[in-house]
């Protein structure tokens, strides 16, 4: 803050980055949205360029590169301005980020279209789809619970790991209810998307999931949320449809299954 005031050059930056890092004089953190939008766009385009010139190296997926670069830039700028990364994120990036974030609503809703496009499959296999998600998630919960225990997470950590299959808005309150920390679960949900986005194609091939389009779609939707659906849409219409239905149903399955599971293993 002091550096900002003394250096007119940096003060201009401060103005552009959201007027005062941390909080403004009036206590608000509202700033300029341009920086957030601009940074998101630039890092994503760099990611796209890297992906292209590396001929599709899986770690150079645009979203993954964009996210890592974006955090790195925020980290560096926060250091330069002498504030914490979290504060800098909130004051400089978030106003713009939220505007892009808002468009995720129509994007998520739009997955009803690929879902309906293969309504024939949905009508034919609806019971199998629901059963696959219930059985698949039940076994997954057990494996995740044991893995978390083995890796050495405490009770709070384990509870935070269980609801992550649901969309963030469902996963967070469940996590809090079974003794986890909602913010950790939200972080897990983001990481799910990033992992599926970066490794999805490779994992699908490695585990030979690609042979069955229904299974691949359901798996991608369950593991990678909306990003998994976007991946599945690229694989084919059946995959896209199944991933979209998985995102909807798995959230309800988590809602019904995770709290009793947590009681069963004695987490609460």
């Amino acid at each position: 803050m002091i550096i900002l005031a003394e250096n007119p050059n940096l003060a201009l930056w401060g103005k552009w980055l959201g007027d005062g890092l941390g909080t403004n004089a009036d206590g608000s953190t509202a700033g300029n949205a341009i920086f957030g939008i601009f940074l998101s766009l630039v890092v994503y385009l760099i990611g796209q360029w890297l992906f292209k010139i590396s001929k599709g190296f899986f770690l150079f997926q645009p979203l993954f590169v964009g996210m890592v670069l974006g955090i790195f830039v925020l980290f560096l700028l926060a250091k330069t301005f002498g504030t914490t990364t979290a504060n800098f994120y909130r004051s400089a990036y978030k106003p713009g980020g939220d505007i892009i974030f808002w468009f995720l609503n129509p994007a998520t809703i739009a997955f009803a279209v690929p879902l309906y496009r293969r309504n024939d499959i949905v009508k034919k296999y609806w019971l199998e789809i629901i059963l696959s998600l219930i059985i698949g998630l039940s076994i997954s919960l057990l494996v995740i619970y044991e893995a978390a225990k083995l890796i050495g997470l405490d009770r709070v950590g384990i509870a935070s790991m269980l609801p992550q299959a649901a969309t963030t808005a469902i996963a967070m309150p469940i996590s809090n209810a079974i003794g986890g920390v909602g913010a950790v679960t939200a972080t897990a949900c983001i990481l799910n998307s990033v992992i599926i986005y970066a490794l999805g194609d490779w994992l699908v091939k490695f585990f030979r999931i690609d042979k069955d389009p229904i299974g691949a779609g359901l798996g991608l939707g369950t593991a990678g949320h909306t990003v998994g659906s976007a991946k599945a849409v690229q694989l084919g219409s059946i995959q896209g449809s199944m991933a979209s239905i998985a995102v909807v149903i798995i959230s309800i399955v988590v809602d019904l299954l995770v709290p009793p599971f947590a009681s069963l293993v004695g987490l609460r």
């Binding site: 957030g36 940074l39 998101s40 766009l41 890092v43 994503y44 997926q61 645009p62 979203l63 993954f64 964009g66 996210m67 974006g70 955090i71 925020l74 980290f75 990364t85 979290a86 800098f88 994120y89 909130r90 990036y93 713009g96 980020g97 939220d98 892009i100 974030f101 468009f103 995720l104 129509p106 994007a107 739009a110 997955f111 279209v113 690929p114 913010a183 939200a186 972080t187 983001i190 990481l191 998307s193 990033v194 986005y197 909306t226 990003v227 659906s229 976007a230 849409v233």
Partner: peptide, 20 residues
Amino acid sequence: IISLTAFLFVPDGVQLAASL
């Protein structure tokens, strides 16, 4: 808008900066 999904998730990922 589905083809834009990956880009729309950039702020979602960058959000991790707040919880590093």
